[in-house]
């Protein structure tokens, strides 16, 4: 018996439950009540409201990613410069929240913002759209920060120290070394960090649903509503999901272009 046969149960499973379900996005986008039509597809695409929401989501995801990068880079940099054994222990503390349930972590913030703060300060915090947006951003950054630290740390800790010494020997000061040597060499880590935060951030709907009382209304929330609370929302929802998939594919392609070494990886 050849060993490759062992993969066959998985291949059958993969076709049935990974490949086939993907087809349904296209099936339901063009099949409304059992009849093939492009009507709903065109209707959805032509609706400017969805594009405005998508733009808003990209904006929120972009800000989240930028803040995560700014906060995570110093963490990863400091860790990578520490003694290996100490850094390994501290870095685990940063990665482990990644595996903690999103809903739970978001609920913790809900309890703080909605129940605890008003009692302590005597004022309600989340009253208008600006404060909602800020709160959503804070919680999104909180949820995604470990996903940015991990790839950055992986790249920075593998950096060849002798390059830094060489840069110093050639007369560059610390700041120049950082910007001319360390930063360019850590691009793969930055890129995979951005991928790990930006794409989930576009699709995240739990944070806005829980923290901002549904505001700002993001793309993920719109899709969720189509599937969960609109009867016959499959057609519109699928079309929106196709647009989302295209966005994901485009950003993955862009990222792959920068990240040729496939750095990143995961713990465990």
């Amino acid at each position: 018996m050849k060993r490759k046969y062992f993969a066959y149960p998985y291949i059958v499973w993969m076709i049935l439950f990974i490949a086939v379900p993907m087809i349904f996005i296209f099936y339901y986008a063009f099949n409304v009540d059992g009849r093939w039509t492009t009507e709903r597809f065109v209707q959805t695409i032509a609706n400017g409201d969805y594009w405005i929401v998508l733009l808003k989501s990209v904006e929120i995801a972009f800000i989240t990613t930028a803040i995560c990068l700014l906060l995570a880079y110093p963490i990863a940099y400091i860790l990578s410069n520490m003694k290996k054994s100490v850094a390994a222990f501290i870095s685990v503390l940063f990665f482990v929240p990644m595996w903690m349930n999103f809903v739970l972590r978001t609920y913790a913030w809900y309890a703080i913002l909605e129940f605890a703060f008003p009692k302590l300060l005597g004022v309600k915090l989340l009253t208008n759209s600006t404060s909602n947006t800020i709160a959503v951003l804070v919680v999104m950054v909180y949820d995604f920060l470990p996903f940015m630290v991990l790839p950055l740390y992986n790249t920075l800790s593998k950096l060849d120290r002798s390059l830094l010494e060489a840069s110093r020997d050639l007369g560059a000061n610390g700041v120049t070394t950082f910007f001319r040597v360390v930063l360019p060499l850590s691009v793969p880590g930055i890129v995979s960090g951005i991928t790990m935060v930006f794409i989930p951030a576009i699709t995240a709907f739990t944070v806005t649903a829980m923290i901002g009382h549904g505001k700002p209304n993001l793309y993920g929330n719109v899709i969720e509503k189509q599937f969960k609370s609109t009867s016959g929302g499959f057609a519109t929802g699928s079309t929106l999901a196709i647009i989302l998939l295209i966005c994901v594919m485009v950003s993955t392609l862009i990222m792959n272009h920068f990240d040729k070494d496939k750095e990143g990886g995961s713990i465990l």
């Binding site: 379900p21 989930p200 699709t203 599937f227 999901a241 989302l244 994901v248």
Partner: peptide
């Protein structure tokens, strides 16, 4: 994205 996996299933 989880969202896509969820709706496809």
């Amino acid at each position: 994205p989880d969202l896509v996996t969820g709706i496809t299933f």
